[in-house]
Design a protein around this nucleic acid. Structure first.
Lengths: 138, 138
DNA sequence: CGGAATCCATTCGGATACTG
DNA sequence: CAGTATCCGAATGGATTCCG
């Protein structure tokens, strides 16, 4: 590991091989899905078990019908959320976390927990860099 | 919790109170930051300790210089990543996970683990819905 | 090597209006 | 109630070129 930094013999192989590079592909695919503006939030609030469309709208302030519907469809297509519509009037549609979604939800909850814990650290650090073009001190 | 589902007296208070609604704000803020196309991936590959700019480029296939630089700046501003530039020629810049970033990285690694485990489930379910306008069967 | 700057296509996502 | 459809501005992000 401590080879002198002038010899670029590293072209042979990545020594630490952080991520297998073929896994990168579907990692990106998953992140692209749940890494949008609302997916994680929807998964998070679905911890209550089953929620109706309007319940989701209420619990996620700021989401539009367009995005709520769209995101639910994505999650549904991926098998993370189950949709059940009751043919009654007025119509009622319920959304539940699918089995596949439960594991993900655990992680999302941790992420939310982390965000709750450290958001002020982040904001503090963010405001501490007034206009730093690059704090290069090397 | 088990009040009959016909009486909508729920307007008074959210019984399960999934997410405190004031936490929603900074949850959204954090998700907006790390929920972009590359942040989590960068945090993930930084598990090797320290990586140079070009190392990051190599380990994250498909990222452009623009996005790598931009995302690194965000992470740096938020205090998740530390940048160290050495005033030598040719220049060398190293990026390391900041202390604040370590907790997040644990979660990101779990997320990647989950993605690796279930990406085929997701893809299978995704292709199983050929054109489902809505699989409403209630 | 490690960026910055500009240009530009695509996508995201909100507002609004309408439907069964 | 639970959507759909359209419009359109804002943001994302890739390609390219140049620079210290």
């Amino acid at each position: 590991m401590q080879d002198s930094p002038g010899t670029e013999m590293a072209a042979a192989i990545g020594p630490c091989a952080s991520i297998p590079a073929d896994q990168m592909a579907f990692i990106r695919q998953v992140l692209d899905r749940i890494g949008d503006k609302w997916s994680m939030l929807i998964i998070a609030v679905l911890k209550d078990g089953t929620l109706r469309y309007t319940d989701l709208q209420r619990q996620i302030p700021g989401i539009s019908q367009r995005m709520l519907t769209h995101t639910l469809r994505q999650l549904q297509d991926d098998g993370l959320v189950t949709r059940t519509a009751y043919a009654e009037v007025p119509p009622r549609v319920e959304y539940t976390l699918a089995p596949l979604g439960h594991g993900l939800q655990e992680i999302v909850k941790q992420l939310i927990g982390w965000a709750s814990e450290h958001h002020d650290d982040i904001r503090a650090h963010r405001s501490r860099t007034p206009s730093t073009p690059r704090a290069t001190t090397g």
